[in-house]
Computed example of a mutant assay.
Amino acid sequence: MLDYVEDLYRDWNDRARSGGSAAQRIDGEFERVRRELGDLPGIVSDEPRLGTMLAHLTKTPHPGVLNDCFFNAATAP
């Protein structure tokens, strides 16, 4: 799952953006990671640290065919 979330981050770093109700939270997490790592768009500067920083997101994603869901019970309808 961590590889999947890292791929989502790399796509986001290449200018893909999240959608849906978790978009603001996920984009915020990815922005924080990029700020802390000093990544430029398209370049991940510290691969091992990236995994450490994204590991907490691996508990909630549900990959789908057309989209992915980062489930949050506190905000789910």
Score class of each variant (00 low, 15 high):
residue 29 E to C: 02
residue 43 I to H: 11
residue 42 G to S: 07
residue 45 S to C: 08
residue 13 N to S: 07
residue 52 T to R: 06
residue 50 L to Y: 00
residue 19 G to R: 14
residue 63 P to N: 08
residue 37 L to T: 08
residue 50 L to V: 06
residue 68 D to Q: 12
residue 1 M to F: 01
residue 17 R to N: 11
residue 58 T to P: 03
residue 12 W to I: 02
residue 58 T to D: 05
residue 67 N to D: 03
residue 32 R to Q: 12
residue 47 E to N: 14
residue 61 P to H: 00
residue 10 R to C: 06
residue 58 T to M: 02
residue 57 L to E: 00
residue 70 F to Q: 01
residue 59 K to S: 14
residue 51 G to R: 04
residue 35 R to L: 09
residue 72 N to Y: 04
residue 71 F to Q: 04
residue 6 E to D: 03
residue 4 Y to D: 00
residue 53 M to L: 15
residue 59 K to E: 13
residue 69 C to F: 10
residue 5 V to E: 02
residue 26 I to F: 10
residue 33 V to Y: 07
residue 18 S to D: 03
residue 67 N to E: 13
residue 51 G to F: 07
residue 1 M to K: 08
residue 43 I to K: 14
residue 44 V to N: 08
residue 2 L to R: 01
residue 68 D to K: 10
residue 52 T to L: 15
residue 5 V to P: 00
residue 32 R to L: 07
residue 28 G to A: 12
residue 20 G to C: 11
residue 58 T to V: 15
residue 59 K to P: 02
residue 26 I to M: 09
residue 19 G to N: 07
residue 62 H to A: 08
residue 64 G to P: 13
residue 32 R to T: 14
residue 27 D to P: 06
residue 50 L to Q: 00
residue 68 D to E: 00
residue 13 N to K: 08
residue 64 G to I: 14
residue 57 L to N: 03
residue 77 P to W: 05
residue 61 P to S: 01
residue 31 E to T: 13
residue 44 V to W: 02
residue 56 H to D: 15
residue 26 I to N: 04
residue 69 C to L: 15
residue 30 F to D: 06
residue 2 L to H: 00
residue 24 Q to Y: 11
residue 23 A to N: 12
residue 68 D to P: 03
residue 41 P to Y: 11
residue 29 E to M: 02
residue 14 D to C: 07
residue 1 M to A: 10
residue 52 T to P: 06
residue 18 S to H: 08
residue 46 D to Y: 12
residue 4 Y to S: 05
residue 14 D to L: 08
residue 32 R to N: 08
residue 13 N to E: 09
residue 55 A to H: 07
residue 42 G to D: 07
residue 76 A to E: 11
residue 55 A to C: 07
residue 4 Y to H: 13
residue 34 R to D: 00
residue 33 V to L: 06
residue 62 H to V: 13
residue 10 R to L: 05
residue 39 D to C: 11
residue 13 N to W: 13
residue 48 P to R: 15
residue 75 T to K: 10
residue 69 C to H: 12
residue 9 Y to G: 05
residue 36 E to Q: 10
residue 41 P to F: 05
residue 75 T to Y: 03
residue 42 G to C: 04
residue 48 P to L: 09
residue 60 T to D: 04
residue 2 L to T: 10
residue 32 R to M: 04
residue 71 F to V: 14
residue 42 G to E: 09
residue 72 N to A: 06
residue 17 R to F: 11
residue 63 P to A: 04
residue 64 G to C: 05
residue 57 L to A: 03
residue 59 K to W: 01
residue 59 K to C: 05
residue 37 L to W: 00
residue 49 R to C: 04
